[in-house]
Amino acid sequence: MTDLIAGLGIALVLEGLLWALAPNLARRVVAEIATRGNGGIQATALGAVALGVFLVWLARG
Rank of each mutant, 00 (worst) to 15 (best):
Q42F: 08
L12Q: 11
M1H: 06
L8W: 04
L46I: 12
L21K: 03
V13M: 10
T2N: 07
L8H: 03
L46Y: 09
A45V: 13
F54G: 03
L17W: 07
R27C: 05
E32W: 15
R36K: 15
V49C: 05
A22R: 14
L12H: 07
T44A: 15
N38L: 11
N38V: 10
I33R: 02
T35D: 09
T2Q: 10
A26M: 03
N38W: 10
W19P: 00
G52N: 09
W19F: 13
G9K: 09
A11Y: 11
P23A: 11
A34E: 15
V13L: 14
A26V: 01
G39E: 01
G37A: 07
A22I: 06
A34Q: 15
T2W: 04
A45N: 06
R28V: 02
T35F: 06
A26K: 00
I41Q: 11
E32P: 00
D3V: 07
R28W: 05
G52D: 04
L14D: 04
I5W: 05
A50V: 15
L18E: 02
L14H: 06
L14S: 09
L46N: 10
V49N: 02
G61M: 05
G16S: 15
G16D: 04
I10T: 10
I5M: 12
G9H: 06
G39Q: 02
A22Q: 14
I41F: 08
L51D: 03
E15V: 13
P23K: 10
E15H: 09
R28D: 09
A6R: 14
I33H: 01
L17T: 14
A26F: 00
R27G: 04
E15P: 00
A48Q: 11
A43S: 12
V49Y: 04
V56H: 02
L25N: 05
I41E: 02
V29S: 05
G47L: 07
L46K: 14
A43F: 06
N24P: 00
I33E: 01
T35L: 13
R36Y: 02
G9D: 10
A34C: 09
A22T: 12
T44Y: 08
G37Y: 01
A20R: 07
I33T: 10
L46C: 07
I41R: 13
R36P: 00
G7E: 12
L17I: 15
R36M: 12
G9W: 04
R28N: 11
A6Y: 06
I5V: 13
I33K: 02
L14V: 11
R60T: 14
F54C: 04
F54E: 04
G39L: 01
W57M: 08
L25K: 13
A43D: 06
G37E: 03
V49S: 05
L14G: 02
L55R: 07
G47I: 03
A34S: 15
L21Q: 03
G52W: 02
G47D: 04
L58H: 07
G9Q: 08
I41G: 01
A22M: 13
V53W: 08
D3K: 06
Q42N: 10
N24Y: 06
E32I: 05
L51T: 09
T2V: 11
Q42P: 00
A26L: 01
Q42R: 13
T44V: 13
I5G: 01
L4D: 12
N38I: 09
A50C: 10
G37H: 05
W19I: 12
E32R: 08
A34G: 12
